[in-house]
Amino acid sequence: MSNIVPFFEKMQALDRRYIYLVVALAIIIPLLIPFNSKTYVTEPTANVYKMIDSYAGRSDRAILLSFSHDASTMAELTPMEVAILRHCFQRKVKVFTLCFMPAASPLMDYALNIAKEDYDVQDGIDYCNFGYKPYGLFLPILLGMGDDIAEIVETDAQGRKISNLPIMTDITNYNEMNLVVDFAASSAVYSWIVYARARYGVNVAAGITAVMAADNYPYLQTGQLVGMLSGLKGAAEYEKLVDVFATHKNPDGTIGRSYSKEILQESWIKLSDVDKRVYKTARIGMNAQTVAHVMIIVFIILGNIGFFLSKKKKEQEMM
């Protein structure tokens, strides 16, 4: 005991830069030495997947991806965006992208460019980037799309009149563009719930940074959010869903199969079987996340042992 206490006291006073070094190593090593780990898919993520998948091949259904974040949270949100876009391109779901902050505008191009690389999809036919609109128009556009999307949004990112684009055939308002997924590091999704959901009944889902995730559970229970992808874990889950179902190669040569809980539980995707790194970014990251979480837990435990030992020592000295 007498040896342990000074040791922990020394550890308590450890320079923070040593801790930083441990953090860096806890992330670098698992990224360099990859291992396969099982991604456990949660219901809120599966619900988003199922809803998007139900629009497959329909010309009178579309989804809107609203990018409400800047580069600072790309690590969590971009893999989600890429995975959802891939899902849409693979299953022929019409998809629109839109943002209200300048910093998000290039992120839409970034995600679209990664996702469309392997697919024969065309801007204006299979997808359309509505581009950046000033924040002052957030509510007007959000509400206006309940009446007529082409009228309120007017032009896409390339300045083309939206009403002239082939993708708009059969798409007028939220009745057709029936799902909005908002990617945010903020409470932006609440505006969709408060205005678009309450007034027009559009389905709203959140792709959210983990910081915000716990706050959204009340909205999941009420159905105001149909689903949610939380942080890197949510992205990893969606990547897995796309690999297990949307891009699955059937024995008859066709691609894609419907969602099934049983298949999901049994399936095991080896990371080395996924050729492109951009399609497994979140899952590779989750390996490092595992090690980092264990490290943080060990830090908390060690810190507390030190705290209690020195507290006990002080009490003994007092006596």
């Binding site: 801790i19 980092a292 810190g303």
Partner: peptide, 8 residues
């Protein structure tokens, strides 16, 4: 991480 060690 540093806070986990020193403050929680």
């Amino acid at each position: 991480a540093s806070a986990a060690y020193k403050a929680f």
